[in-house]
Design a protein around this nucleic acid. Structure first.
Lengths: 151, 151
DNA sequence: GCCAAATTGACATTTCCATTGTCATTTTGA
DNA sequence: TCAAAATGACAATGGAAATGTCAATTTGGC
């Protein structure tokens, strides 16, 4: 049927737009990091800590859905940059909580608010409801694709 | 404003969903390639040729937006697999047109139709209009992000 | 038609992101 | 209490893609 096929076709296009979208987004983030001492992956760590508070390395890894060994590397970089510090973890003495320093907090707040401003610009002539719809669809599709791959 | 901020927030979420979506999509494609002799990047070459007809290596690179040197590698793999062949290029005798062989055409058609079937499954309980809206929004956002990065 | 500039294939090197593997040390839970 | 899991540290590997380079064509301006 015409409609059915168009639907699958559009879905296909939507899914394959994910790569260009991701690349464009990463390029923008990188551009916004110019002038700071942060790398994209350090920024990712700081953002998690800003949103969710102090976390252990394995917790951050779980949120980012990447291996803890790699996150350890990312976190160590942010540690030596002085953007985060280790704080004693009452639940687990060997695995310290990684926590934003004042410097790290200021930096990530500035960066995130600049990024949000960019989002406002970009959203200026887009309909708010359409954006919500897009988010809903993309989340649903991602979930379903993940299930399929998991089988 | 509440609405303005929510809009930017949703846009932010949408943009950052692009990575999980892409990863899930690639995992599915990879799963669908099991049993064939194709790799993901060989499949990409075949799909371009199926959609757009025979092309030179630099043309394929332009479509994929990656460097010709890497595409050359991908194409050479598909050549040695017997999925494509070189045909004389009337416009340019040094740069042959890469063209699907019968074997390559059958393979890519089977794979693409399997993938479309997956898309139909995934779209089953999604609204066709919502999907179109999502595609429209994602395309617009990607375009704007690219412009910003290009400045 | 000539010649400089661009294109192309081929190959080598490098970078970046991320996974995998391993080990000694905790930590946890049955 | 003790086996199993979690953690940090570090090494090795894999893979995608960029970058660098070269010789052979090809093209376009004159």
């Amino acid at each position: 049927m015409y409609n059915v096929d168009m639907k699958a076709e559009h879905l296909h296009s939507l899914v394959w737009m994910s790569r260009p979208l991701m690349q464009a987004a990463e390029a923008c983030v990188e551009a916004g990091l110019q002038g700071t001492e942060l790398t994209v992956r350090m920024r990712a760590v700081l953002e998690i800590l800003q949103r969710h508070g102090e976390q252990t390395v394995p917790e951050i890894a779980a949120r980012l859905e990447i291996k803890r060994q790699y996150v350890q590397l990312m976190v160590n970089e942010t540690l030596s940059g002085g953007f985060v510090e280790q704080r004693p973890n009452p639940r687990h003495s060997r695995s310290p909580l990684i926590s934003l320093t004042d410097r790290g907090r200021e930096l990530i707040e500035g960066i995130v608010s600049k990024e949000l401003a960019v989002m406002k610009t970009i959203g200026a002539d887009l309909d708010a409801e359409d954006i919500e719809t897009a988010l809903k669809v993309v989340r649903a599709v991602t979930g379903k694709l993940k299930n399929l791959a998991g089988d």
